[in-house]
Design a protein around this nucleic acid. Sequence first.
DNA 1: GCTTGCTCCTAAATCGATTTAGCATTTTTC
DNA 2: GAAAAATGCTAAATCGATTTAGGAGCAAGC
Lengths: 353, 353
Amino acid sequence: MVGSCVMRAMARGEKRPVTVRTIAEHVGVSTAAVSTVLANRHEERRLAPATVEKIRQAVRDLGYVPNVAGRRLRAHDPGVRHIDLGILTTYEAPLFLVSRALRQVQRMADARTGPGRRFSVSIGMYHAGRLREMPGLLDASRCNGVIVTNTLPEDDAFLASVTLPYAVVVLGRRIANYCCVIETPGESGRRAAEILLAARREHFVVLTPALLTQSTAERAEAFAALVLERTGRPVTRVIAGGFTPANAADAMRAHLAAGRGCDALYAVTDSLALGAYQAIKDGNRRIPRDVAVVGVGDHEHADFFDPPLTCVGPANDAVVEHVVTWLFHLMNHRRVKPAEVHVAPSVVMRAST
Amino acid sequence: MVGSCVMRAMARGEKRPVTVRTIAEHVGVSTAAVSTVLANRHEERRLAPATVEKIRQAVRDLGYVPNVAGRRLRAHDPGVRHIDLGILTTYEAPLFLVSRALRQVQRMADARTGPGRRFSVSIGMYHAGRLREMPGLLDASRCNGVIVTNTLPEDDAFLASVTLPYAVVVLGRRIANYCCVIETPGESGRRAAEILLAARREHFVVLTPALLTQSTAERAEAFAALVLERTGRPVTRVIAGGFTPANAADAMRAHLAAGRGCDALYAVTDSLALGAYQAIKDGNRRIPRDVAVVGVGDHEHADFFDPPLTCVGPANDAVVEHVVTWLFHLMNHRRVKPAEVHVAPSVVMRAST
DNA sequence: GCTTGCTCCTAAATCGATTTAGCATTTTTC
DNA sequence: GAAAAATGCTAAATCGATTTAGGAGCAAGC
């Protein structure tokens, strides 16, 4: 285990953190000597082999872990401005939208890179619902600007309760006092409903995960509302245990096995649609003849599902473009009022309807 | 543009980087005042509104970008050791394998997190072939340990030419003097061939992208070699323009349209298999009756392809487990000799064969 | 005996931002 | 008019690692 030695050290009553200085004192040399060994430059700087070994031993015994902030500050070249951009997402969410955002950030960053200015882009991971534990979020000690996405309601509440003194754009959520880019509320669900209504279907089903986010909740609600308004009949809600195709397949199989009808399905994420496909086909039903399916386009390969999935959902390119542009504006100290940008969903008709 | 003001400032002949100090001098106040304004704490610390405005203006005019390393060092709590782990991948590669690694890293990190020790995990992005430009790679000023993956041959050469003085594990590539975890060379290709040979097929095809990596090249070669050995006939190579299903679909359609046979297909990535599926079905052939297909299992949803894809490939979990365990060992100062670990491919038989 | 050169090591400066303790002023209070 | 309180700001310390200039000690050379 990392630092098991430290645990022992701690148990011995030494509470001080282990820095180069601790090691230097422990061995009886200067920090310069320690640093030299850590960088493997003891040969060129002619440290005695015995000293090197003692230092190495102390490093191991004390469980030294270098402080990257210290290193980086020291290594910093004042002539080059370093700008760190982060995309914050959860371990749990799919990376597709993130990878789109990433590519857009990269394009804009590359266009602005030059001598004297360099960007680095990274994806920061947090546990869904525990954004507050993300180090460096509150004090901007990790990034110069971040895109926050895939938040759960707890995270939204956390964000709403703080003011971050740097460039932050929220992707796919609406949070007071932030710059947010979201799909036009309810529009996806309504357009999906219209497509299925136009196909003159009877039994409308909406497939959602048990845990809803702002977007998925809005999609399901708007869909149900419009179908109810137009047909007078309520929409059946099928709830998958999780976010995976397997969860969706189980839920749909149960629904179909129970003999409850379904000839029009709206899945609030494409992963769910993929699972539903399998359940539907296994039940000897054809898509779209027996069941028409509409998804949202958040899967990389929705166009290679069999049949290719009709999607109504956030126009990824447009969304990402807005987000990234905004981020750069914010970083440029433009006075940008926090606000919401709504992006109309894009509709891609494919063979599943 | 970020820093357009700076450009102007530079043009005026001011070459010094812009720090809080620059701003302080420019306005005629202390750095403390500037810092106060940047953190939005001027109210509680009672700075005169006029001063605040002047500082704000200077920040904008000079195009100030905070140095995150400085901030972080200062914000650092000596009681808590912060360990930064990074997974380095390219903008170009799919994120699936990375996300698997990520989850494993997260699990192991969480198990070691406690008061006094915190981890942060991030994905660092580089341009394929330009790993050398990755900031902080050589001097360990970004991460305490990294997993490097999706390298191109140029990157491999670069890594081979340097010695990194910290914990590095290479995933999926073989590089001298590094800790590398790879699938047993050639094993995937051979096992794939065996599966298709056992199905008594005649026309063996291997589908690859135009640009090969170490892994994809080895798979294709080993497959072709074994088929040739057993049947005496050479394998047809179908080359997709890129890495996407669409590229694969085009290539396969062309192949089939040309009337060149194919009843056994080995795709060296699942994305290619997905594209091939479409081409095959569009050509009114059935999988596996007319064409048996084997993939590698690098797609999140290979089990939800239609039919579910038989896969022979890196046992992701095993690979990732090795990589991450190794990484933690290295960070714990264990003397670990650089070496290769080979992980036997896992075989998952599904309906496509 | 003095210089030169080598070996092995250290003191101190530095990177950039933040905060704490405290110092001048000015204003209010009694 | 003196004491107390508020206002507006600063000097200096600090976080951790690295590097540079240089020093002490000793051996070799003349």
